[in-house]
Design a binder for these strands. Structure first.
Lengths: 192, 192
DNA sequence: GGCAGTCTTTTACATTTGTTAAATAATCAG
DNA sequence: CTGATTATTTAACAAATGTAAAAGACTGCC
């Protein structure tokens, strides 16, 4: 594509001020696309070779455990959407990416992005910082899920991401919180 | 210090082949030290400004929740030991670092390391890859703790890190698994 | 060796969460 | 608008886990 969406450039700039040349190089290996809700843009079993940016809309990363659909991550535009355990280890992912609210996305070829790291140190730095931030988010989520009760986690979500509660179905939120939907219903009833 | 311990250089080389010059620059901002077990090398409340490498021995990252001591991470030498949520956000950490088996360590000044990223791109790349790996480990741990039963998690630990079970006390392992020590005892009894 | 302190297991009971199934509410397509 | 589908809540019971306290096992120090 010729130029990245302004919302994506602003997303990048939160992390690192990238030169116009670097942005053009990223645009060069990226393609925009639009997806309707309830579409799986990456199935289980494929190795992650594309880095997605969700510009508008909502995506989730999910997988199946004993036939149960489990949500691991919600991405509200603008955000990055990757299955890092597959991308960085170059192994097939057991996880899928599904769009759950009509979305505008950008797909960036991962191999070509990593090549770009050699020519444009600013790009490596940008993505280093983005993934460091993802890492910290995951640490915090681990702590939340490991040592807070289901009720505490739900209330924290309510306070920290109220829009998530408004726009995502409760069955997805339940599995994201690591509890059954019945437990989530009980918690909601208890604080009403 | 003059030269990094060979075990640390081998640890680095797993991730990225770094030039001798870069290694010397890292050594230049690093200091070796030795610590006896049951020593806290970083207390709660301090912002993480040092990156530790544990060469030999065991460290753990832990914190307190309602007065209960919770282990978040075990580091067996050779490994990196940082409280990433503090290091990358430059905020005081609610977590402490304790040595639980006599250890040889290297302490690297974080601010000077980050300055080194500008002069030695190989160093930025090395640490980018190290932290990407930490990130993937955390994703996998999150998945493990979110969607496996306590018994499944204990058995996985038994298979994947048997030495951990032999060298670390069960009270630390229980909190690492996100369960009470009583539950851990019951699980151990049930598979005996 | 023996005592003190710590670690681990066990017991009894309370609480939380899960499972299954049914009832109710909301949403969507035609 | 209406029937069909999906989402959410509720109920009843089972299973898992937590808490508190006590007993037993282990460790280190004098």
């Amino acid at each position: 594509m010729d130029t990245l969406p302004p919302a994506l450039i602003r997303f990048f700039e939160q992390y690192h001020a990238v030169s116009g040349e670097a942005l053009a190089a990223i645009a060069d290996i990226s393609e925009p696309f639009w997806v309707k809700k309830n579409t799986e843009i990456q199935p289980v079993g494929r190795t992650c070779k594309t880095i997605y940016f969700i510009i508008e809309g909502i995506a989730r990363i999910h997988y199946y455990k004993n036939g149960t659909d489990i949500t691991e991550y919600f991405a509200f535009g603008p955000d990055i959407v990757v299955r890092a355990e597959s991308l960085f280890k170059n192994q097939p992912s057991q996880k899928a990416i599904e769009i759950i609210e009509n979305a505008q996305l950008v797909a960036t070829d991962a191999a070509r992005l990593f090549q770009l790291y050699d020519r444009q140190p600013g790009v490596e730095r940008l993505f280093r910082k983005i993934f460091e931030d993802c890492y910290v988010d995951t640490i915090n989520r681990l702590e939340s899920i490991q040592f807070h009760t289901a009720k505490e986690r739900y209330i924290a979500l309510l306070n920290e991401q109220p829009k998530l509660l408004q726009r995502v179905s409760l069955k997805h939120i339940a599995s994201y919180l690591g509890i059954s939907q019945v437990t989530l219903s009980r918690i909601r009833a208890s604080i009403r």
